[in-house]
């Protein structure tokens, strides 16, 4: 036998860590979604689609500004010492992923703003003179538009990676301590963003293209999940225990049904049929992908907090 009893019962710590509630998964999901949107809209800018469509090059970055602000508000709500939040921006700690993240988010806003100004719809012209001037300046320089597109893709990729690195840097939680997590969250963010554009764009070309792209992202995500789980199962006992939390433990039902089944496999089948013109495009598959991406963050954040190094002692 091996029995441990403790007199400690600190709130949010015992019997298992539960310091992060809904705010962090929502923040990580919205951060990943915006990262994916930035990569997609950056690609469209790079390819010159801003000449044909207002949606991907104007509305998407605008929507991203709102989504990212909502995500940052969720993060702000999570802080326990809210009045001191400005401390994040008075220092830079190289070893702290959260410090990197706060400065990356500062880069994201001007990048999104530059993207929105590449093509302003007529309804929004002649309202703010400065924006009109900047927009005209950008439009006269096609190479600058391409550069903004590349910048948007790079900053988006960094943002998407950061949402995974934030967790995987915390080695005390075996489930998060995986080198796959950043690429898994980046791919999930891309998949949710492709589904999001697929869902709301009025451009047939973009809808078809992003449904195809999303199928690729979903297949790659399945491959990454396999890598993530195999990596944990082939590691130490505590990492194996962490993997079993989502494979057969208390988080298994949500993981298999909502993340893998409803979030990846079912929408993948529907979208494969849709892109092969066997069924029509409907909002069902993209909504499932988006909800699956959100639930993935909840499962990973919650199960990660539950996982611990207790095998060698309390």
């Amino acid at each position: 036998m091996h029995e441990l009893t403790t007199t400690r019962s600190n709130p949010q710590i015992d019997p298992s860590l539960h310091i992060w509630g809904w705010e962090i998964p929502v923040y990580l999901f919205l951060g990943g979604l915006v990262a994916g949107i930035m990569i997609i809209s950056g690609y469209f800018l790079f390819k010159g689609r801003y000449k044909h469509s207002y949606f991907s090059c104007f509305w998407l970055p605008h929507i991203s500004l709102v989504l990212l602000s909502a995500g940052m508000f969720a993060l702000f709500l999570d802080l326990e010492h809210k009045l001191y939040v400005w401390r994040l921006f008075t220092t830079f700690k190289v070893a702290s992923p959260m410090s990197w993240g706060s400065w990356i988010l500062i880069l994201v806003y001007p990048t999104l703003l530059a993207s929105t100004l590449t093509r302003v719809p007529p309804a929004f012209q002649n309202r703010i003179k400065l924006f009109d001037k900047v927009s005209a300046f950008i439009n006269q320089r096609p190479q600058l538009v391409k550069n903004i597109g590349v910048l948007s893709m790079i900053v988006g990729a960094i943002l998407g990676m950061y949402t995974g690195v934030l967790l995987s840097a915390l080695g005390a939680r075996p489930l998060w301590n995986s080198s796959i997590l950043w690429v898994l969250f980046l791919t999930s963010g891309l998949s949710a963003a492709a589904a999001f554009v697929h869902l709301i764009t009025d451009d047939k070309y973009e809808r078809e293209l992003l449904a195809k792209a999303d199928n690729g992202f979903l297949i790659f995500e399945l491959f990454l999940f396999a890598q993530f789980i195999i990596g944990l199962l082939s590691s130490t006992q505590v990492h194996q225990n962490a993997a079993h939390l989502i494979l057969s433990g208390p988080y298994a039902a949500v993981f298999w049904v909502f993340v893998i089944g409803m979030g990846i496999i079912v929408p993948l089948i529907i979208q494969l049929l849709a892109v092969n013109h066997k069924v029509q495009h409907t909002p069902v598959a993209p909504i499932m992908v988006i909800v699956g991406g959100l639930i993935l963050r909840f499962v990973i954040v919650d199960a990660g907090q539950f996982s611990r190094w207790t095998i060698a002692g309390f």
């Binding site: 310091i19 802080l79 010492h81 959260m98 005390a172």
Partner: peptide, 11 residues
């Protein structure tokens, strides 16, 4: 700032 990263990082 009460971000709780340190709490999560302590094994």
């Amino acid at each position: 700032i009460g971000c709780k990263a340190c709490v999560a990082s302590c094994p």
